[in-house]
Design a protein around this nucleic acid. Structure first.
Length: 144
DNA sequence: GCCAACGTTGGC
DNA sequence: GCCAACGTTGGC
């Protein structure tokens, strides 16, 4: 099983909306970048992904599961190369893990989220996945 | 709101 | 095939 990160502008499609879809899930449409498309095409059913809010929030809020592998993106013109997958909300993180926190963590420095900030769908290594989950379960960093 | 990074387009 | 111009994205 592989791990991924899905980036969404909260004004366009938010974690709250994704959760509200429940077990019906939602097509992940609108990807118009070839690298991100290759990532979508590599996904298998039951792969898991972080749900990340870009722009104002800049944090990982939850976990989604892939429930349908890549198929032609219904939001793209016929004959175009773009694909969608379907994802369902699995759970919210105990505590959101923010981009600033990720950037400050030596273990997470080489995440594509950090190194290639404009890539909207990216793979996440096992190490990074579990490290972020641990951070989300840990009490917020000491404030002194 | 600004700017840097990046991808795409189009002229040559 | 190169490269400048332009549009988009996303962090700050």
């Amino acid at each position: 099983m592989a791990f991924w990160l899905f980036k969404s502008e909260p004004d366009v499609w938010s974690w709250e909306q994704q959760q509200a879809r429940g077990a019906r899930g939602e097509p992940w449409t609108g990807v118009r970048n070839h690298q991100a498309k290759l990532n979508l095409m590599a996904m298998q059913v039951e792969d898991l992904g972080f749900f990340y809010h870009s722009q104002t929030d800049r944090a990982i809020l939850g976990i989604v599961a892939v429930v349908r592998t890549a198929y032609p993106d219904p939001s793209a013109p016929d004959g175009s190369p773009w694909v969608a997958v379907d994802v369902v909300a699995r759970e919210s993180l105990v505590r959101p893990v923010g981009l600033a926190e990720i950037k400050a963590d030596a273990v997470l420095q080489d995440m594509l989220l950090v190194r290639h900030s404009r890539l909207s769908v990216s793979p996440v290594s096992d190490v990074h996945w579990h490290h972020i989950l641990e951070r989300s379960r840990a009490v917020q960093a000491r404030t002194g």
